[in-house]
Design a protein around this nucleic acid. Sequence first.
DNA 1: AATGAATGAGTGTTCATTCAT
DNA 2: CATGAATGAACACTCATTCAT
Lengths: 211, 211, 211, 211
Amino acid sequence: MSQVLYISPGKREQTKAANRQAILDAARQVFGELGFETATVRDIIRRTSLSVGAFYNYYRSKEEVFAALADDGARRFKPILRAQSAKATDFESYLRAAVAAYFDFLAGERETWLAGGPGGEPLPHARNTPEILAVFEEVRRVFAGIMDRDLAGKVDLDFLTASCIAVAREIGDKMMERRPVDAEAATDFVVRLIVGGLPSLPRFEPSGADA
Amino acid sequence: MSQVLYISPGKREQTKAANRQAILDAARQVFGELGFETATVRDIIRRTSLSVGAFYNYYRSKEEVFAALADDGARRFKPILRAQSAKATDFESYLRAAVAAYFDFLAGERETWLAGGPGGEPLPHARNTPEILAVFEEVRRVFAGIMDRDLAGKVDLDFLTASCIAVAREIGDKMMERRPVDAEAATDFVVRLIVGGLPSLPRFEPSGADA
Amino acid sequence: MSQVLYISPGKREQTKAANRQAILDAARQVFGELGFETATVRDIIRRTSLSVGAFYNYYRSKEEVFAALADDGARRFKPILRAQSAKATDFESYLRAAVAAYFDFLAGERETWLAGGPGGEPLPHARNTPEILAVFEEVRRVFAGIMDRDLAGKVDLDFLTASCIAVAREIGDKMMERRPVDAEAATDFVVRLIVGGLPSLPRFEPSGADA
Amino acid sequence: MSQVLYISPGKREQTKAANRQAILDAARQVFGELGFETATVRDIIRRTSLSVGAFYNYYRSKEEVFAALADDGARRFKPILRAQSAKATDFESYLRAAVAAYFDFLAGERETWLAGGPGGEPLPHARNTPEILAVFEEVRRVFAGIMDRDLAGKVDLDFLTASCIAVAREIGDKMMERRPVDAEAATDFVVRLIVGGLPSLPRFEPSGADA
DNA sequence: AATGAATGAGTGTTCATTCAT
DNA sequence: CATGAATGAACACTCATTCAT
């Protein structure tokens, strides 16, 4: 027998990586536009030069691509957010750091936004890429931690966290739809709105009430 | 060979309307719990005394019930919102009126919220009843009008509207998850946050605004 | 509303029952010819005037038809076998009763044997209808009980049971391939062979050996 | 860019034969454990140091390995059986020789039997290795010849052959499941049962036989 | 009108087979 | 020759919609 070993990545490895990425990119678009349920594996591979079978060479199931996308987003965003918030000292700087990190992440994802399916209608309100959902989860955790330390027992934490996320999410989307994408201005808007509104919020005085 | 019994021939029109409503009610629950894609027509009629066939006597498709639900919500909410905001004089009272109207609407929908899937977990992000989405659209229009009159050219209207909607939506959901449902407190939270933050918002003074 | 109730079976019920049976018959053929794995649901419905969807109106899965067939066979055979063997007094009459019951059952199934797919090749050695497998299981149990009582400790029970089943099975198939089908002759052959051979079988003498 | 190493250019032919055999061995195991349909080509090559591609270098299809296995078994068994039965003088010695040969063949295949699925239950009716089926065909032919010579016109030859095969097959399987594997005892059981039963079999004396 | 069985396109997934490297 | 990624037909099963009753 003559056994042949190919050493060094070579073209094979390259295309493998490229295909993996192509599927990921297509999946990001499709999930974003259609949502997990509506999106079909065939929708994904149609945006690709691959076949159904090839999809399953790279990911074991529709769910796995979704998870891979989410992991990827969370993994890329987590260190940025951690680094930023480590430097922060009070609530405002925490908030600003987190929002700025999130908006930077979003802006970095720009290429994805620009894609726009070949034949499909780009559904308006569909920004539910698993990556983005994962990022929100991370932000939510950090925010909760931040506010717990600084503001506990004074304002309705649950409501406040929810509001921060909601505003950041919405303004983030709006920001991405504008040209040029101005992350600084958007960050400023969010932080001023929240921090400005904070003192006006109803408080439960000394005697501890619950939520 | 097949014997036919007509039971209570009564007011045809009455029962027709009742069936229409029964489907609508069932659909509201099901779409709320499962989302449009996951929900099946059979899921809907199962919560009804009707048959699949009857469903198609009243609505031409799954999509049509969804649309009907949206119309219904918008129709019921529009007059309330209009009446409330007619009495308002400045931005704060406008905002408060609109948010209060929305939260009242939500609270009135309570039965729906109480449903809770038979065997399943009350899916987290499944609060997208078409009615609710329609209400948001209406709120968005009114808000835009209000702010256009009072604040135009000074703050980023698009961002501000988006923020109001986002916060109202999120806090509305949170409110509904609490017992007892306290619409007044929730309204207060939203209004204070927004109105309190308003003065801190960046303004583009004399020179022209952008898009 | 006018509610209409159709009372008495009517044509609907009739065709339902007919379809159920048609699927069962088609499945018996297909499983017999192809085996459970190889047989596809489409193979089954192709032998029917129904659609894929209809199949699932009647049976929840491919496995369920298989089970239904097996249950049916076991249910029909069990009482016959029980009745026959209740009357038996020694091993020979037991054996004869059981074999006769099995061969009668087989002969009663004749229509099925005559079917023969429209376009497909009637694979030679494929008599593994779930019904028949179920019948064998039942026979095996009864035989084991019988021999346990009469012959325990003297001959290799496991070998003997296996031999009885094997011979009955094989001769049963052969019998069905002949015209006319002569159950009595076949039964006689099996019983004589086994009962005649029994005294020659090796025994483990007084001192108990194991199997 | 891709570096190619040829390892041990050695005797081409030797390794080719070895690979062929490796595939055959793996296939024997896999078909035995899983059956033809359930077994996948990947299941086979996974028990090999080869790749899917290599599989198709040696065999043109999954079916071809199956056939090759059958041929192999028949080829190996045929001479043994022939030799044994050449020495036989009457029916009993013929039968004993054939059964002994078959059981020896089976015992020689022991390694295969020992395999036992990695995670799964050793499927009950999955002893249909093509080799074994082929062996049966051969046995059937020899038996038919033997009995034709010795017993023609007196007993139902077709029934008797079928019974011999059925019993040998079944007892062979049982034998292989016991420890230690005792081919002699098993042979004795089969021969005594059949030969003992033979005189009791119904005969069609003077007048003509049917088919 | 009401019914619910029938339909068949569509879904996620598997697997024998091919072919560029 | 070996390799293993690519292919696409096939599978079991679901579900919106139609239609005979």
